[in-house]
Design a protein around this nucleic acid. Sequence first.
DNA 1: GTTGACCTTCCCATTGTGGGAAGGTGCAGG
DNA 2: CCTGCACCTTCCCACAATGGGAAGGTCAAC
Lengths: 141, 141
Amino acid sequence: MNIGQASERSGVSAKMIRYYESVGLLPSAARRANGYRDYGDQEVAVLQFVRRTRDLGFSLEEVSSLLALWSNTRRPSREVKKLAEKHIADLEVRMAEMREVSKTLKKLAGACHGDDRPDCPILDDLSQPRTKRPAAKHAKA
Amino acid sequence: MNIGQASERSGVSAKMIRYYESVGLLPSAARRANGYRDYGDQEVAVLQFVRRTRDLGFSLEEVSSLLALWSNTRRPSREVKKLAEKHIADLEVRMAEMREVSKTLKKLAGACHGDDRPDCPILDDLSQPRTKRPAAKHAKA
DNA sequence: GTTGACCTTCCCATTGTGGGAAGGTGCAGG
DNA sequence: CCTGCACCTTCCCACAATGGGAAGGTCAAC
């Protein structure tokens, strides 16, 4: 089947399928005489796996590792679990950072009248030379 | 003072100061005869404001709006509060997505022995053609 | 006058995705 | 047979925000 069909069935855009192939996440697809990529059910299954793994927030690098484990029938489940737990820990860290920020903002927003008047504790806080805010060293969130 | 000093005092890297200027977040800095950018306490205060606002996770576009409000003494605090609340809502959405994913992964990881054996509920789940997983439509996290 | 610490601009890489151009292919209808 | 449309191909650009680093100018101290 063509890439369009594979895209539709897997939920991965054609653009992304080509990209995944180009960065080596996926093996080079078979080509037909006209140069079109050709996919079978097996390939679609892989794409679906990638899609779901991405949906769970794993990076492409992690997806790559999971794909390798998936296709290795002698993998130790330990490896898989380790990746999952690392990702969970990652999520927890980011959620904690976000929770801190959210808490701070809620407190500030709660103290702001939010009317026509210009005085605003939010801006006041942002103007503080040094804050006692939890020092979000790398608050990506 | 030079950009290095301003960077140190504001906590914004020299690289970023130049970048912020280049994208119009900050006005063009004054230049000395030798072409070096020149900063005063006022500029450093702005940089600190940007830094703290970024630390709270606002995008550069939002920082830009907040800067404008900050320097407008006749702003309605309503505007500021609105931006803060939008950002809070944003965080809540992302945290909710992450929580879902985290919950799913914890359940799966909990069911995986994590030893030398290859059988693994995590991979099994990722292989499911269609999951009942909360359909994280755009789980960026 | 040389060394070293600054500064300048410019380009590249990151992560993952989409948009779009320019051109080939293949099928259906006229 | 030709045209049009839908599909495919590759290639480049853009995003957001940041860092790395090259090539070159400047300045102060020694």
